[in-house]
Simulated scan of single mutants.
Amino acid sequence: MREIVFDTETTGLDPKKGDRMVEIGCVEMINRMPTGETFHAYYNPERDMPAEAEAVHGLSAQFLSDKPLFADGAQALLDFLGDAPLVAHNASFDFGFLNGELTLCGREIIDLDRMVDTVTMARRKFPGAKVSLDALCTRFGVDRSHRVKHGALLDAELLAQVYVELTGGRQIGLELAAEEVSAEAQPSRIAARAVNREVRPPRPHSASEEELSRHRSFLEQMEKPLWAG
């Protein structure tokens, strides 16, 4: 199954109040394993960058001024996304901005049925615990030492590792390995093991007559044994 793990960076918190998406990073996964294929883009938001937002991701209005508009790069992004489920952390936030940008350029929005929210998954799995991306990386031992500021592609790559752990972790690899063994190959392997198995004669486990005689003699020497009543 193909899935896309993605993250966005924005100018603020609410696309309905004029905030825009300025960066998106996507990681392709097949059967919960990263394929190495990614998509990453910066966009010119055609507006200022609030200081509080820049402090989070480090993207200034000057840096973004020569980047393409979302409308100009929308098709490339949509081609990469395809019809795969889209995994994000606090997914309603990222979907809100992605669909907001698609609406602004007259594109069809992405169906929310494709949304997979890792925050919801984490809250179900660890009720009452912190479920931020940093907290989950710590819980699962995912190295985030190179994460100085938020970055869409970096955060998507970290989230991909967290998502694997939330959905079964390293056991997934075992399941996939088992699937690679074809049904036709299994009988021949079983047969080969049966043919090569050394046939051993049964080992005697009963006491010999001599051992039984010694045991009776030992019991006769005991005075007032408990089992004699």
Rank of each mutant, 00 (worst) to 15 (best):
E101Y: 04
E101V: 10
T103P: 01
L104S: 01
C105F: 06
G106R: 01
R107T: 03
E108D: 02
I109M: 06
I109C: 07
I109T: 07
I109W: 00
I110D: 09
D111Q: 00
D111P: 01
L112V: 10
R114K: 01
M115W: 02
M115S: 00
T118F: 10
V119G: 11
V119E: 12
T120K: 07
A122D: 11
R123D: 07
R123T: 02
R123M: 09
R124F: 02
R124K: 09
K125I: 01
F126L: 02
P127Y: 03
P127E: 02
G128V: 05
G128K: 06
A129V: 01
A129M: 04
A129I: 03
V131C: 09
S132G: 00
L133Q: 02
D134I: 02
L136W: 07
L136M: 14
L136C: 12
C137K: 00
T138R: 12
F140S: 02
F140E: 08
G141R: 03
V142R: 05
V142E: 11
D143S: 06
H146C: 10
H146Y: 08
V148W: 13
V148L: 14
K149A: 15
K149C: 10
G151T: 14
L153F: 00
D155A: 09
E157W: 04
E157T: 03
L159W: 10
L159F: 11
A160I: 13
A160S: 15
A160K: 07
Q161G: 11
V162I: 14
V162L: 10
V164A: 10
V164M: 10
V164N: 10
L166D: 01
G168N: 08
G169N: 01
G169A: 04
R170Q: 08
I172K: 03
L174M: 04
L176D: 03
A177H: 05
A178E: 01
A178C: 00
E179F: 00
E180D: 04
E180N: 00
V181K: 08
E184W: 13
E184I: 06
Q186E: 14
Q186T: 15
P187Y: 14
P187A: 14
S188W: 14
S188R: 15
R189K: 02
R189L: 06
R189E: 13
I190T: 15
I190P: 03
A192F: 14
R193P: 09
R193F: 13
N196L: 14
E198R: 14
E198C: 08
E198S: 13
E198P: 10
V199I: 12
V199F: 08
V199G: 08
R200W: 08
P201M: 04
R203Q: 09
P204Q: 11
P204E: 02
H205G: 09
S206Q: 06
S206M: 11
A207L: 11
S208G: 12
E210F: 12
E210R: 05
E211R: 03
E211T: 03
E211Q: 13
S213C: 07
S217D: 11
F218T: 08
F218P: 07
E220I: 05
E220K: 15
M222W: 06
M222I: 13
M222K: 05
E223V: 06
E223C: 00
E223P: 01
K224C: 05
K224D: 10
P225V: 14
